[in-house]
Amino acid sequence: MDSSASVGSPLAVQTSGLTKRYPLAWKRKVLVALDHLDLEVRPGEVFGLLGPNGSGKSTTLKLLLGLIVPSEGEARVFGLPTDSLEARQRVGFLPENPYFYSFLNGDETLRFYGRLCGVNGSKLEKRIEELIDLVGLQNGRERPLRSYSKGMLQRIGLAQALIHDPDLLFLDEPTAGVDPLGSSQIRDLILRLKKMGKTVIFSSHLLEQVQEVADRVAIFSLGKKVLEGSLDSLLTEDRGTQVHLPAQLSPDLQQRLRQVLAGAGFAERDISFTRPRLSLEQLYLRTVQSQPDLASNDSRSK
């Protein structure tokens, strides 16, 4: 499916009053897993679902995939009912902690999922080649999935989600349990998908990663969406200004700047000069990626 097809098409995802309740018969209570969710995601967006465990993120994804039936409300994908085959033809899904069929190898796995999506013959084989390249699993093609590392499983999971070239991807905790390097590769992959014009909706606990890839986020708590917006609008502080310079300021220059700012009415205690710091993740990635033999789990031949 051509990614340009999504331009000018209906919203990638639209829900109104979407609710899921689970009756707890033995307690004579009802658990509201998702409470009247109104959500709109535009084609081409990367949308992050945030929230603690049990806040309704996975329930939202299952409802959008038509895997479970809503108790109330409605959800549509590209204007189609979520449980229709047409909608599923345009959607790919990576579940949380996927296991897949451990007795299949990488190629067999992709071949199986491809056939389910109606991709067959030389078209399927070509697609498998492309996806193996995309997710960097050349050394895992002939190995059974039971011998895969967690990061490799996530990558084959992404490949199976993309096998039919969907316009919309749902990724449930795509980096859960994956080491920082694997996690950063998945993040890079999401950015590549965005460049390809795909819409990506994903849930994650790793806030820094969400910040790096998402255009917009929604924060869930106890089954309700409590905040939604673009990262720029949500994270930009109006009370302050940061100045970045490509060199250290000498004490003399700092003193002169303080005088200028004090002259403009700023109190001495409100002015600070700090040196930029790397995050621990940035330091880790920079160190690990500089080691060619450790750059990929796949590079070890077993």
Partner: peptide, 11 residues
Amino acid sequence: NRTIYTILSKP
């Protein structure tokens, strides 16, 4: 194994 999700999310 949650493999059912990967199948039923396909067409």
